[in-house]
Simulated scan of single mutants.
Amino acid sequence: MNIRIISCTVLAVLYAVAGVLHLIVPAPFVAIVPDWVPAPTSVVILTGIAEIFGAVGIGQPWSCRLRSTAAWGLAAHALCVWPANVQHMLLDLARPEHGLGLAYHIPRLALQPVLIWWPLWAARVTAWPFRPRT
């Protein structure tokens, strides 16, 4: 099986699960929304819906255009939630026991560019950093 198809499937499952969690248990996600974001509960719900739509789009095999559009959406989503991940780290580190700690947060923040790139690569929007076969 093609590694890109497997990647699309893995991304679809991960984003579907994340989307459902945003909808059924929004409180932990609302708690890490930065203060400058208006209507945090609504944003979390909309984020969950976007993740589910992205999962459906990238996971379907019949339309390259839909898969590519979903990949761009998931990449944009990963970029847009980065501030919430930074906020989560800052809130955790401000706790007396330091919450999940740097061993959790630093890799999570460092992997954010991978979450931006991965759907684009999986959906064949980009081949970077790999050279296309000739």
Rank of each mutant, 00 (worst) to 15 (best):
L66S: 08
A16G: 15
T9K: 09
T47G: 15
L74N: 03
V30T: 10
I24D: 11
V43E: 12
I45V: 13
P26T: 06
A55S: 13
A70V: 00
T9R: 09
A12W: 03
A78G: 06
V25L: 09
T69L: 05
C80Q: 13
L14T: 14
W36K: 05
G48R: 02
Q60N: 07
V43H: 13
I32S: 10
A18E: 06
L21K: 05
R67L: 00
P40S: 09
R65Y: 06
W36A: 09
C80A: 15
A84R: 12
P40M: 04
A55I: 08
I6Q: 09
I32N: 08
A55G: 12
W72K: 04
V13W: 00
I5A: 15
A31P: 02
P40I: 03
A70R: 00
V33F: 08
R65D: 08
A50N: 03
D35Y: 08
V44C: 07
F53K: 01
H22C: 06
A12C: 11
V10D: 10
I45M: 10
S63R: 12
G54S: 13
G19W: 04
A75E: 01
A84C: 14
N85W: 02
V86L: 15
W82F: 15
G57W: 00
I49Y: 07
V13T: 00
A18V: 05
S7Y: 07
I6W: 08
T9C: 07
L14A: 15
T47N: 12
P38L: 10
L79Y: 07
V86W: 15
H22L: 07
F29R: 14
I32Y: 04
V43K: 14
L23T: 05
W62H: 08
A71E: 02
V86N: 11
G54F: 01
I6N: 07
S7M: 12
W62Y: 11
T47R: 07
W82C: 14
V44A: 04
A31F: 02
A18W: 05
V81T: 06
P40C: 09
W36N: 08
L66D: 01
L66T: 12
A39Q: 14
V86H: 10
A78Y: 05
N85A: 10
S42F: 14
P61D: 04
P61W: 06
R67A: 05
L46V: 12
W72I: 13
D35T: 09
G59N: 03
G19C: 07
I58D: 01
T41F: 08
I6Y: 08
V20T: 00
F29N: 13
W36E: 07
P28G: 02
